[in-house]
Design a binder for these strands. Structure first.
Length: 324
DNA sequence: AAAAGACTCAACCGCGAACTG
DNA sequence: ACAGTTCGCGGTTGAGTCTTT
């Protein structure tokens, strides 16, 4: 059976909304304490629009809590960070930016942020430097992004668990770490980690064109933090970033590794990890709680443990001149 | 001043998930 | 359990505006 149309399209108006239509829609929703059924709303309100169009107009434009004006730098950073984690899940991203709509964020991404990452030499799809496609040590068969990131997550998780075990046996509970307890394990046990694990099963099939979510899930901290750590003005000639075209995959793996360590360094209470809610909101909140602060300190802190100092030096020395 | 190209963003379309009977 | 209905999401479009030549 064919899909029934959302509304009878004959005689219905399309295109830009007029002020009168806006007023009718707003008044109807106000007077009825909500929209009720979008499908029946146009008829009841006296609008020659389909319900879908009404819903879109309301959610993207007329809703009273919509924030107007340009995006702040903080909002842009947050969007990049969340996109690295969630991919093109605009609604999920929008839910973390009060007053901003998914459509607005999608437009911002497509018109500004994507170009900005490209300008920085970062693939906006994967949040990895473009040079990461080069695999000098595995020329014949580079691992798929999903496989690599699965390995990174798993590696970080194992290290985290080992560290927890070591610390709990040697020192007992660390009082100063309670507040940010085991970020990584919580994230791993969340929906985000779960989706990543599921997607990783298809890693070999997905290969280079895997979904943004699968590719970005674990790379986000590497790619997006790099993106976030440099003030970028795409209009400025001679733009430099800390991410260079010569950065190789291993630097990023190690960065992820130390990043995972940093998640764990923030806490040692593993007993609660299995009790965490498996919701994306929780995962997102964890991400948002994770300090980015425009610096690379979380990488530097663990340089000694993982030999990341040299890697970080390479990262810093590599500069990228924006050709745009 | 005018044409061409680039950019922005509101709105549309189709799909899949969620809901309902 | 199933089919039909509704809703929400993400990709895409195209009209309007701005910038460049």
């Amino acid at each position: 059976m064919g899909r029934t149309p959302c509304c009878d399209k004959r005689g219905l108006k399309k295109g830009p909304w007029t002020a009168e239509e806006d007023e009718i829609l707003v008044n109807y929703i106000k007077n009825n304490n909500g929209h009720g059924s979008w499908r029946s709303l146009p008829k009841l309100a006296g609008l020659l629009r389909c319900g879908k169009s009404c819903r879109l107009r309301w959610t993207n434009y007329l809703r009273p809590d919509i924030k107007r004006g340009p995006f702040t730098q903080e909002e842009e950073k947050l969007i990049i960070q969340l996109h690295g984690m969630l991919g093109n899940r605009w609604a999920a991203i929008a839910s973390q930016l009060p007053g901003r709509t998914d459509n607005e964020i999608k437009n911002l991404w497509n018109t500004h942020l994507k170009k900005r990452l490209l300008c920085m030499g970062i693939d906006p799809l994967t949040h990895e430097p473009f040079s990461s496609n080069h695999y000098p040590t595995t020329k014949s068969c580079p691992p798929s992004p999903s496989t690599r990131h699965m390995a990174q997550w798993e590696s970080a998780r194992l290290e985290a668990e080992a560290r927890l075990s070591r610390e709990s046996s040697l020192f007992g509970p660390q009082p100063h770490t309670k507040a940010n307890s085991d970020f990584f394990l919580r994230l791993w046990n969340s929906e985000v980690g779960d989706s990543f694990r599921k997607l990783s099963k298809f890693g070999e099939k997905i290969e280079c064109h895997s979904s943004p979510i699968s590719q970005a899930s674990s790379s986000t901290k590497c790619g997006s933090v790099s993106a976030l750590t440099t003030e970028v003005d795409p209009n400025t000639a001679g733009l430099e970033t800390t991410v260079g075209s010569q950065v190789e995959e291993m630097e990023y793996c190690k960065s992820c590794k130390s990043n995972g360590e940093d998640f764990m360094a923030a806490g040692s209470d593993s007993s609660s990890s299995n009790d965490m809610e498996d919701s994306s909101d929780t995962a997102l909140q964890l991400l948002l709680d994770f300090p980015i602060n425009n610096d690379m300190s979380f990488l530097e802190e663990n340089c000694s443990d993982y030999g990341a100092a040299a890697d970080h030096a390479m990262l810093s020395e590599s500069s990228f001149i924006c050709p745009l």
